[in-house]
Design a binder for these strands. Structure first.
Length: 314
RNA sequence: CGCGGGGUGGAGCAGCCUGGUAGCUCGCAAGGCUCAUAACCUUGAGGUCGUGGGUUCAAAUCCCACCCCCGCAC
């Protein structure tokens, strides 16, 4: 099968790798342009581009895959199938109709739930204990195409977006090959998505990480898990940004004010929330490295009765 | 040339502004106390103060360059 692969982020890497290792012919890889990013605005390549150049695959990086020049190029490849995984651009019908067969997309949720850019993080943040993978035949609407294959995946208590993403991207790469095999054998039965059940998982923004201490400890805990490693849940300690990477919850009820540090123990800071207690185990102060509580307490002034999340500490 | 914080014994920090032979909380080792302990007491080992230059009688501290880590922004 002659395939053009569209992908950008880490999530797409196992899928691409599997395709490259398969008998299928990857005609070209389409990925986002190199962008000035990160500290000092250095130019960086997508993980997909790095893998592709290592494997000597033709790379195409359009600013917009829908423009006429891109369309012309994509048509010239004469592909059987377009495979799209975490690409980062929205396609129009003109793109989707180019391949002989059609275009498929691997998405990290059990569609129609969690359509959109951040399905994994949002699922964890909502405290789900199950999510999954879907492969769909793409149409013009985002993540709304008919379902080709699905596979549920459990979310474990210890999972963060980081671990779950890895799991899902690995499994996704396998599922993708299955799907392509079924397509080749013409054994697909499309399943329409139930629009009434559709939910959305919008792209995460930095401010999604701001902790509201009035919320339940469990809710905050799930937020911390879902936002690891990026954008990372955060609060403030004496006007400095404090990222919180690892937490636990303790059910013991209390009448303290949300955000108050009630105790400092070896395993973590005990912080009052709207309901329940949050145990902060790993954190990172602005400008410093991520560290566990034992280390943090040794070098920083922190004591019971201080408040988190109050920009100007009383 | 996007903005800013930081690199000090194994860990986390103070000291730097106002140069003058390195400190704190831990960890580690040995000994003591104890029925016992992650508790307490005593002693001890362990540091080219990121790298290279410069200023100075003297630099962790001031000046210049570079490397690495981190946050913002993207």
């Amino acid at each position: 099968m002659k395939i053009v692969f569209f992908g950008s982020s880490d999530f797409a890497v196992p899928s691409l790798r599997n395709l490259l290792d398969s008998p299928h012919e990857v005609l070209a890889v389409v990925t986002q342009p190199d962008r000035k990013k990160g500290r000092h605005l250095k130019v960086s390549q997508t993980p997909v581009k790095k893998l592709s150049s290592k494997r000597g695959i033709t790379i195409y990086q359009p600013e917009n895959a829908k423009d006429t020049e891109s369309l012309k190029y994509l048509e010239s490849l004469r592909a059987d199938l377009f495979v799209v995984v975490a690409f980062g651009q929205i396609f129009s019908k003109s793109v989707l109709n180019i391949p002989k067969i059609y275009s498929i997309n691997l998405h990290a949720s059990l569609l129609p739930k969690y359509r959109g850019a951040a399905p994994v993080s949002r699922a964890i943040m909502n405290g789900e204990n199950r999510t999954g993978l879907s492969i769909i035949r793409m149409n013009e609407r985002m993540d709304a195409g008919d379902i080709i294959l699905q596979r549920p995946v459990g979310i474990e208590e210890k999972d963060t977006s980081e671990t779950l993403n890895r799991k899902l991207s690995d499994l996704g790469g396998i599922l993708l090959l299955d799907a392509i095999r079924f397509i080749e054998q013409d054994r697909i039965t499309f399943k329409k998505q139930d629009e009434k059940k559709a939910t959305f998982a919008p792209k995460l923004k930095k401010e999604d990480g701001l902790i509201d201490w009035k919320k339940d400890a469990l809710k905050i805990h799930n937020m911390v898990r879902g936002l690891t490693p990026w954008p990372c849940a955060f609060t403030f300690l004496n006007d400095k940004m404090l990222k919180i990477r690892k937490t636990d919850v303790s059910p013991s009820p209390d009448k303290s004010e949300p955000g108050e540090i009630l105790d400092i123990q070896k395993e973590g800071l005990i912080v009052a929330c709207g309901k329940g207690l949050l145990i902060i185990k790993e954190l990172q102060l602005e400008g410093a490295k991520m560290m566990d509580i034992a280390s943090f307490v040794r070098g920083h002034k922190i004591e019971k009765g201080m408040f988190l999340g109050r920009p100007a500490c009383r």
